[in-house]
Design a protein around this nucleic acid. Structure first.
Lengths: 116, 116
DNA sequence: CTAGACAGCGGAGTACGCTCCAAGGTCAAG
DNA sequence: CTTGACCTTGGAGCGTACTCCGCTGTCTAG
């Protein structure tokens, strides 16, 4: 699939896709005319990238994990482990939010922390 | 308190503190010699800033919230409303994370999105 | 054959959140 | 009076993750 279709199907801009290719986050062949030609599995991969990004992973980290997964023989198992890691990250973040929420709730009706 | 002590007590670098002052995230007086002089409540405020930052709020957002708090009429009602707004923001973020967590949980044990 | 959609490339620019540097002023201790 | 810690300013630079731009090439429909 060419870059325009991939952009439409993933909601990632063409410029961003070219940038992702440059940093090795996605890969594609080239058509005889020089146009990029991405395989269909790039679509779920980019959805995964977006998810990972939301969880606070940098593109470099995501690219590195992707490379590790491609090299791993037992990919389903490796992926599950990765997902479980991320779930732990999410849980930690949710716990932080819960703590902040509790702090805020406790302050409702009290004084302002910005004044003396 | 001068900038060095504030840096030590909060773990925020002096350069970062000067940057924060420039963008209006923190405020301080000046001593007769020109040195910055921060009030003690800057310490908990910076801890709050760090918490908010790790939760994904930008410094601009944090500064804006801080400004709203400072400008709010000093009534428990107005302050409570602001805190409740913030709690709603936190709740929304937690809901997003919960959705992501569900998505990840559903993918554990499934195939790899990197291969066809 | 031409218009228009699509693609390519390189490079500049942007926003965020700092960090580092140079050159210099302030102040307490020895 | 000097040393050294501490402070000032302005400006440059950096990493991340893009976005925008101009110019050029490709392909398809009328």
């Amino acid at each position: 699939m060419r870059i325009g279709e991939l952009a439409v199907r993933t909601g990632v801009s063409k410029d961003a896709l070219r940038f992702y290719e440059k940093i090795g986050l996605i890969e594609g062949d080239r058509l005889p005319n020089g146009y990029r030609d991405f395989p269909p599995e790039t679509v779920p991969w980019l959805q995964y990238v977006r998810t990972a990004q939301t969880l606070g992973f940098t593109l470099a980290e995501i690219a590195r994990h992707g490379a590790e997964l491609k090299e791993a023989p037992d990919s389903a198992e490796a992926l599950s482990a990765l997902f479980e890691d991320k779930i732990r990250v999410v849980d930690a973040r949710m716990a932080e939010l819960a703590a902040l929420r509790a702090e805020l709730t406790g302050r409702v009706g009290t004084g302002c922390p910005l004044r003396a």
